[in-house]
Simulated scan of single mutants.
Amino acid sequence: MPRRSYDHYCPASRALDLVGDRWSLLVVRELCSGPRRYSDLFADLPGISTDMLAARLKDLERDGILTRRRVGPRASTALYELTAAGLGLRPVLEALSAWGTTLLGERRATDAVRAHWFALPLGRLIAERIGRGTATVRIGDTVFHVISDESGVVHRDGPAEAADVVLDLDLSAATAVVNGSRTLEAALPEVTWPNRVAVD
C-alpha cells in the first residue's frame, strides 16, 4: 500500500508523513527507555490491536525510525529499538509531554496507566531539581533511571549504577507530581536532594 502524504512542502508535514499516524509516536515513547519485545509493546499499549501494532512497527522500521533484531535461542525473539533518527524524536515527545501535562486533569475510570509513562514528565521535573546528575525512580514494581546532563535528559530501564538520588513513589504520588497537584519535594519529604549542579 503506498504511503499517504499531505503533499505539503513543509518540514512539519514531512515529519507527520512518517510519524503522524495513530499510535506511531506512542510506539516511539515505549522505545525511548530501551529495546522492547513485541509482547512488551503490546502489553504496554492498551487499546492497540495486534494488526495495528504490527503495521506500525513495520512502517517505523521501513522509515528508519526503529530497527528489529533477532535475539534469544535460535534467534526466536524480535527486539525493537530506536535508531538515531528515532531517538531524534525524543525532544518532540518531551515537548508534547510538557504541553499535555496541563490536559491531564483527574484520571478517568477508562484511562489506562503504566508507571513508566511518567518517565518523560518526571525526568523533566527531576532535571529541574538536580540539574546535572542521575536519579533512580521506583514507582511500585517499575524502576527506571533518569540522566540529566549537558546533552539533555534521558531515561533508561532499571536502576542507575550510581544514582545521586533514589526516589520511591507510589502510583498516586507519581500521578499527583505529574499532573502538578504536588511537588516532588512534597511527595518525597524524606529525600535528601543532592546539591544542584547547573546543566551547561
Rank of each mutant, 00 (worst) to 15 (best):
S5R: 15
S5I: 01
Y6D: 09
Y6F: 12
D7H: 15
D7W: 13
Y9Q: 13
L16D: 02
L18T: 13
L18S: 07
L18M: 06
V19Q: 02
V19T: 13
V19D: 06
V19M: 06
V19R: 04
V19I: 15
R22M: 04
R22A: 10
L25I: 10
R29C: 06
R29S: 09
E30K: 14
E30N: 11
C32V: 13
S33F: 08
G34R: 08
A43G: 10
D44P: 01
D44S: 13
L45S: 07
L45D: 05
T50R: 15
T50W: 08
A54S: 15
A55M: 10
L57C: 08
K58R: 15
L60M: 12
R62L: 13
G64A: 12
T67L: 14
V71A: 11
G72P: 06
G72K: 02
P73K: 12
P73T: 13
A78R: 10
L79N: 08
Y80E: 02
Y80C: 05
L82H: 04
A84P: 03
A85V: 15
G86W: 02
G88D: 13
G88H: 12
G88Y: 08
L89C: 10
L89M: 14
L93I: 12
L93V: 00
E94M: 09
L96Q: 10
W99C: 04
L104A: 11
G105F: 08
R108F: 03
A109F: 10
T110F: 07
V113S: 11
V113H: 04
R114P: 00
F118W: 09
F118K: 00
A119M: 07
A119Q: 12
L120S: 08
L122P: 03
R124P: 02
I126A: 04
E128T: 06
E128V: 05
I130E: 02
R132S: 14
G133H: 06
A135E: 05
V137H: 01
R138L: 05
R138F: 06
I139L: 00
F144Q: 07
F144S: 01
V146M: 06
S148F: 05
G152V: 09
V154P: 03
A160F: 00
A160K: 02
E161G: 15
L167C: 03
D170W: 07
L171C: 03
T175I: 02
V178A: 03
V178T: 02
N179Y: 03
N179F: 01
S181H: 07
E185C: 00
L188I: 05
T192D: 12
W193F: 07
N195S: 12
N195L: 13
D200Q: 11
D200I: 09
D200Y: 04
